Amino acid sequence: MQDRRAEPRILSDETGSITLDEHTEIACLVHDVSLGGVRITLPDATRVPSPFLLTAPPLDGIKLCHVVWRTDEMIGVQFR
């Protein structure tokens, strides 16, 4: 099967943190990191708004993210 992604992905299983507001953070796992976005898994992806802030070791600093697709436990995001 041909990979049709626009950018190469780096496989990852690092822990990260989604910041919802100044008082609320949600732990997550970060996968498939690219220059333009990332795939995230967490127990309840429906709680995550768009946009949000993401912090994780494979990323260079804090990223502002926009949800592109979502399932109950996964989110695909684009960096802004």
Rank of each mutant, 00 (worst) to 15 (best):
T46V: 10
D72I: 01
L54H: 00
P57R: 10
S50H: 03
H66N: 10
S50I: 04
R47A: 13
A45V: 10
I75V: 11
G61N: 06
T71C: 10
R47T: 09
E73Y: 00
L53F: 06
Q78P: 08
A56Q: 05
A45N: 12
D44E: 15
P51F: 05
P49W: 09
P49M: 11
T55S: 08
G76M: 08
L64Y: 09
P49Q: 14
W69E: 06
V48A: 07
P49E: 13
D72P: 00
F52E: 06
L54A: 00
P57A: 10
M74N: 09
V68M: 10
G61W: 03
L59R: 14
F52Q: 09
G61M: 05
D72H: 07
F52T: 09
T46M: 10
H66C: 07
L53D: 12
R47M: 12
P58R: 14
L54V: 00
L54D: 00
P57Y: 07
V77D: 01
I62S: 04
A56F: 04
P57L: 08
F52M: 13
W69C: 04
V68I: 15
E73R: 09
R47Q: 13
L64M: 13
P49T: 14
P49L: 10
I75M: 12
M74D: 11
P49Y: 10
M74A: 15
D60R: 11
V67K: 06
L59D: 15
H66M: 10
A45L: 12
F52D: 08
P57V: 09
H66W: 06
T46I: 07
S50F: 02
V48M: 09
M74Q: 13
V68K: 12
E73C: 04
T71K: 10
D60H: 12
C65D: 02
D72F: 00
A56T: 04
P58E: 12
L59P: 14
L59Y: 10
F79V: 03
E73F: 01
T55A: 05
C65R: 04
W69Y: 11
R70K: 11
V48I: 15
T55Y: 01
P58D: 11
D44Q: 15
D60E: 14
L54W: 00
C65M: 02
H66L: 11
R47K: 14
V67H: 05
L54P: 01
V48P: 10
I62V: 12
D60T: 12
W69T: 08
P51M: 09
D44M: 06
F79W: 01
K63G: 01
V77Q: 01
F52A: 06
V68F: 00
S50D: 05
T46C: 06
A56M: 06
D44N: 15
C65V: 03
E73P: 00
D60A: 13
A45S: 14
Q78A: 15
D72A: 14
D44G: 03
P57Q: 07
A56R: 07
E73S: 11
I62H: 00
A56S: 12
F79T: 04
K63W: 00
D44Y: 08
D72N: 06
P58T: 13
